[in-house]
Amino acid sequence: MNANMANTRISVRLAWVTFGSILSAAGLELFLVPHNMIIGGAAGASAIFSYLSEMRLGLFLFLLNLPFLLFRYRKLDAQTRLLTFAGLSILSLSAFFLHPAPAALDHTLASTAAGGLALGIGIGIVLRFGGFLDAADGLAMTSEAKAPGRIRRSYWIFNGSVLFAGGFVFGWDEAMYSVIAFLLAYRCSDFALSGFSLTRMVWITSESGEEIREALRSRYGKEVILLDNEENGRGKMMVCTVSRMEQASVIRLIRSLDPNCSLAFHAAHR
């Protein structure tokens, strides 16, 4: 019985990874690439190499992402390896077969929005169900626990470098649209990764617990639940819920009161 349930869960996750991979390939081949727009990461680098070599994008999507899977092979569990390899293969094959198709939209800005949405949601779905479609995302997700600040900076530097290189290859007008597509895809992937939840739970560990509680209550009307009245060496642990629209300003407020506090977010489902 347990084996059947485990196989069912894997099948469901594999189905969602397949859907996310095909959606991501459609975002690239039907909306972004026909208009010489790219996003960061290995997908953006693949688009540049594909343009310069006149070879199909799907080939480079597989070749540039495969080293990440091999490099991280021993550090990933069996399910993650399976889902990542399946997602990468389906992404590459889908892009390969969609390549001859004409652009779905002629308007550049509309293609930017549609491509960013499709690609971001597709990537987020694959991440949510245990796989990776881009080496940059995978490396950031699997390494951030050890050095979050350094990994995050490296992630943005790498993506920015790819977008900057795209400006030299495709032109700076296309680069401007590429930045818009990248930011939209980034936000959409985060939204999909959280299960399309509009509410986030924020876990706070701070030595300025009372000050933070009072600030969140007075400015946002938030009820902050104190999880532990005792000091644990890093301060008091608290939790509250915020909307996705409030998240950035809440982070700024908390950081202004305690720059060294620990913050963690995850989706809050009703």
Rank of each mutant, 00 (worst) to 15 (best):
R72T: 10
L98I: 08
S53G: 02
L30Y: 03
F96V: 10
F71T: 12
T18E: 05
L83A: 01
T18K: 02
F71N: 12
L88S: 04
G40S: 06
T18V: 06
L28D: 06
N36W: 12
A95N: 05
A95S: 08
T80G: 00
Y73I: 11
D77Y: 05
P67Y: 07
I48C: 03
V33A: 09
Q79C: 12
E54C: 12
A42Y: 13
S92L: 02
F85G: 15
I39K: 11
H35K: 02
G41L: 08
R72Q: 14
L59T: 15
A101R: 08
M37H: 03
Y73F: 15
V17Q: 00
A95V: 06
A86I: 13
A43P: 09
L61T: 10
L14D: 07
S89Q: 08
A45P: 09
I39F: 12
N36R: 15
M37P: 03
L23V: 15
I48K: 03
L66E: 04
S50Y: 05
L52W: 12
T84Q: 04
A43S: 14
A101T: 12
M55Q: 15
T80H: 11
F49M: 11
S94R: 03
Y73P: 04
V33L: 07
G58C: 01
A42S: 13
A15C: 08
H99E: 15
L61N: 10
G41K: 04
L52K: 08
I48R: 05
N65I: 02
A78V: 14
L91D: 01
H35W: 00
K75S: 15
L23M: 10
N65G: 00
S53C: 07
L28K: 06
G20T: 01
R13D: 14
V17E: 00
G40Y: 11
S92N: 01
F60T: 11
F49S: 04
L98T: 09
S94K: 06
P100W: 00
L30V: 08
F96N: 14
F49R: 01
L66W: 04
S89M: 12
F96M: 14
A15H: 04
